[in-house]
Design a protein around this nucleic acid. Structure first.
Length: 838
RNA sequence: GGGCAUGUGGCGGAACUGGUAGACGCGUACGACUCAAAAUCGUAUGGGAGCAAUCCCAUGAGGGUUCGAUUCCCUCCUUGCCCACCA
């Protein structure tokens, strides 16, 4: 007989599938739909390595299973071709991004086609196609219309090497995620999307996403970073001339009492402003002994005239600016800061005047950029106060108070929870806080806090917020770590932002019927580094007329970030050629949402948050009918090189799927990648393992020549296999599915099979190894594709074990193993066991 | 520092809601076929004791619950990922 000739078989079936249009998806609305989606790749110059197709193989298996189960399946592919990586690659290789992108797409596509995917290439999309990005721009206009897209001049993250502003999400360790350069903070005009408006919905709807892995949901929760607390206003007053405390060179605790004594002393100095702070612990307001503002905070700049040591403050602000983000967030670094002389902040709770510092441990872009410091109950404040006090003590000046207002509860369980050894008791901790030797930031009971005394933390918080609101000096407030999305890039290779700047009408949206605003062809597309995009240099494109007044105007030259086009692409596959709408309503209603989405975990806090936000917006304006885009989400584990490192040109350990397909066949690659280990886990490539997969296919091939008679034992195994493979694919447990198929084949080789059993097995195998399955299906006498068949049903009777081994143990020791009927009752089993013991 | 994972033979990994740990694959050893090798097929393969039936030990470490724990609980350790002065 002939051998399994994978080269002939692979290309034969790939041709047949494509010429017959087997995988072209029709909108057959009488059938149930199933939408399986891969995160579309950006076509880099390096081409695919063997790790890329792993996720694609998985979705392909799922798609083929669903086809066999009678679903109308949508399984599309496209290209995320805009953005920095594509542009940097083009720059490096001295090519126009358009040319290099097209070339790379061609390479990727040919590589993918060799693996035999069910992609419907009629629906291929490309984010750089004007017919596609027309709708990206359209959505931007809608957001602008609703006030969700706005211009801002706040300092943002700037990558000096990529010469563009970046979003919070584009940083890694304070460095540019793409090139690793240290990020600078640079004030510049930019477009920003108000994603924070959706923060609560993005957070709360996570609970509805039962088909998402918990780890990814948790990452999103942390990224959104919701915290409840209060915003409190401190009045700013001119500092009185140095007074009674001048002579006080005592310890911190005593200084605290001194200042306690002055609580009610009212001054007649004029208030010269207000300092707003955010805190999650309004219950500790009575423990506030100073305030800190971030160096970037505008409040201090406005108070220049009242500040007596302005030069010193100004120096500090300048120094901070020079620090990179990395230096600034370096935790090991001592907390630096300068006291602002000449003004004091008034604690609204007790009227006490407390000093104000500038310090860079307070971040400008969280909360109000200013805090109330409670050193007795916050680690960072404690560290700062302790450090300052050392200096102050040397200078014989008044110390910063460390005032305890929360007493740990005298409860062993509680103390253990908050990280204290059981020997420590609350009294001892309390004494230490009082002496200013430690801080305590967990919950407890309020003391030294006037009307909060005796209340537990949660109640105290509530009461304080009520009180603040009543007095009009503060309010309950929720804050997020999530920042609004910095949406403009000063680069060439992105969607132009459809806005016109008119000297008369200022900022004007481009009317919808003028979309798309196409990216002009230019000679020089290198970034300028000036804060303007290279588009600014193209006069004939920049100069336009104002849509409102028809006067001369200039186009917006910033472009959108890479994440723009990928935030909604899954909707476009549903209706890729529609020039009237982003997506047809009926088609959207049929196909949406995506049933299963597979891609890298690195997108958990970028693409997946952006896409959810974009989708919710489209929901709000009635474009889509469902609030969440992806029902099930599964992340792919990386494939590492055989040496355990990441596959990379640098290490010379990259394996190209083309070579594997050539040598072992597409089906061997598919089976092996799914058999390597649990799908979500990263595993190292092993050529020996790959050979094992190929051996399995050879055994299947050889089995087709040994079809004789029906064997009950084999038939039983078949039914088990049908059940297990079907279930395992749905749970993405491909490794155990393949293991079960191997068990079946081993049994079939040993005991024999008949035609019926073998054919059913071929259908089960087909999603994994479609080429060989088609070939053998034809060989057994079928004319049509195996994928027109129905997924076989298993007979529960065939799966039941008739007898099971009952293990008899006495005191944990194995005494006997006896065969009993599988459906035995517990009592009977006991009887038999007891009888056998004797 | 916080969050989420993770830890099982020489290796990748199985083990359903607690029930004979090591399925399946790789590797290795021996055997068959061959003049020989490769490929293929067969047998064995966690460690220890024994001629053997069989027994003892073993799922990161240490405790606990249970007739019985890889699985549940507590303490600690390893490795990986994500976040990180977020008030």
């Amino acid at each position: 007989m002939d051998k399994y000739d994978h080269k002939r078989i692979d290309s034969k079936w790939q041709e047949i599938w494509s010429s017959k249009g087997l995988y072209q998806t029709k909108d057959e609305k009488d059938k149930p739909k199933y939408y399986v989606l891969d995160m579309f790749p950006y076509p880099s110059g390096a081409g695919l390595h063997v790790g890329h197709p792993k996720g694609f193989i998985a979705t392909d298996i799922l798609a083929r299973l669903k086809m066999l189960q009678g679903f109308n399946v949508l399984h599309p592919m496209g290209w995320d071709a805009f953005g920095l990586p594509a542009e940097n690659y083009a720059l490096k290789n001295k090519l126009h991004p358009k040319e290099s992108t097209d070339k790379n797409i061609a390479t990727f596509k040919s590589q993918l086609k060799k693996i035999g995917f069910t992609y419907d290439w009629e629906r291929e999309i490309n984010t750089t196609d004007p017919e596609y990005y027309k709708w990206t721009q359209w959505t931007f206009l809608k957001m602008y219309e609703k006030g969700l897209a706005y211009e801002s001049h706040e300092p943002i993250n700037w990558c000096p090497s990529c010469k563009t502003g970046l979003a919070q999400e584009d940083l890694e360790d304070g460095k540019c995620e793409r090139c690793g350069s240290e990020i600078e903070r640079k004030p510049m005009r930019q477009w920003v999307l108000r994603i924070t408006e959706y923060a609560d919905r993005l957070l709360n709807d996570l609970d509805k996403l039962e088909g998402w892995e918990d780890s990814i949901k948790e990452m999103q929760r942390n990224w959104i970073g919701r915290s409840e607390g209060a915003e409190v206003s401190f009045k700013i007053k001119k500092q009185k001339a140095k007074s009674k405390n001048e002579n006080c060179h005592s310890e911190g605790a005593q200084a605290t009492e001194e200042s306690n004594a002055s609580i009610s002393s009212q001054t007649s100095d004029q208030a010269s402003g207000e300092l707003k702070v955010f805190t999650t612990r309004p219950d500790t307001l009575f423990g506030c002994t100073y305030c800190v503002v971030a160096p970037e905070n505008q409040t201090i700049l406005n108070l220049e005239s009242s500040i007596s040591n302005w030069n010193e403050i100004n120096d500090y602000i300048k120094k901070t600016k020079k620090k990179s983000d990395l230096e600034r967030t370096d935790l090991n670094k001592d907390k630096s800061g300068v006291r602002i002389e000449g003004i004091m902040a008034v604690n609204p709770a007790d009227g006490e005047e407390v000093p104000i510092f500038v310090a860079d441990y307070v971040l400008p872009n969280y909360g109000t950029g200013a805090i109330m410091a409670v050193p007795a109950h916050d680690e960072r404040d404690f560290e700062f106060a302790t450090k300052r006090n050392e200096e102050l003590r040397n200078k014989n000046e008044e110390l910063i108070g460390i005032r305890c207002v929360v007493s740990p509860k005298d409860n062993r369980e509680h103390l253990r929870l908050v990280g204290n050894t059981p020997e420590e008791d609350s009294q001892k901790i309390l004494e230490e806080i009082h002496r200013g030797e430690r801080c305590y930031f967990w919950k407890g009971e309020n003391i030294n806090s006037d009307f909060l005394n005796g209340l537990e933390t949660d109640e105290a918080k509530k009461k304080m917020i009520e009180w603040l609101e009543e007095k009009g000096v503060g309010k309950g407030k929720v804050n997020y770590k999530l920042n609004d999305w910095v949406f403009s890039r000063q680069r060439y290779w992105g969607e132009p932002i459809p806005i016109v700047h008119c000297p008369v009408c200022s900022t004007v949206a481009v009317p919808e019927d003028q979309l798309p605003i196409e990216l002009p062809q230019v000679e020089n597309y290198e970034p300028t580094g000036t804060g303007e995009s290279p588009l600014a240099g193209i006069d004939e494109w920049v100069n336009t007329t104002c849509p409102k007044c028809s006067g001369p105007a200039k186009r917006e030259t910033n472009t959108m970030p890479q994440w723009a086009g990928s935030s909604w692409y899954y909707l476009r596959y549903i209706d890729p050629k529609n020039d009237k709408a982003l997506v047809d309503k009926d088609k959207e209603a049929y196909w949406s949402p995506v049933d299963f989405y597979v891609g890298g975990a690195e997108h958990a806090t970028r693409h997946l948050i952006y896409a959810r936000f974009w989708h919710k917006f489209l929901y709000d304006i009635g474009v889509v009918n469902y609030e969440e885009p992806f029902t099930n989400l599964q992340h792919v584990g990386l494939i590492m090189a055989e040496d355990g490192r990441k596959m990379s040109k640098r290490w010379g350990n990259v394996i190209n799927p083309d070579d594997i397909v050539e040598k072992y066949g597409a089906d061997a690659l598919r089976v092996y990648e799914m058999f390597m280990g649990p799908f979500g886990q990263s595993v190292s490539w092993s050529t020996n393992g790959l050979e094992g997969a190929r051996r399995f296919l050879d055994r299947v091939w050889n089995l087709s020549d040994k079809i004789y008679e029906k064997m009950e034992e084999t038939e039983r195994e078949l039914h088990k296999t049908i059940k297990k493979v079907g279930e395992d694919i749905a749970e993405f447990k491909f490794n155990t599915a393949i293991s079960q198929m191997m068990i079946f084949v081993n049994k079939a080789v040993d005991l024999g099979v008949d035609k019926d059993i073998f054919e059913k097995f071929l259908i089960v195998l087909a999603p994994f190894a479609p080429h060989i399955a088609e070939e053998l299906w034809e060989k057994t006498g079928h004319k049509d594709s195996i994928f027109k068949e129905e997924w076989p049903k298993f007979d529960p009777e065939m799966i039941k074990e008739e007898e099971i081994d009952l293990v008899v143990q006495v005191n944990g020791k194995l005494r006997d193993t006896i065969k009993v009927p599988a459906d035995i009752s517990e009592e009977e089993a006991k009887k038999i066991a007891l009888a056998s013991k004797r």
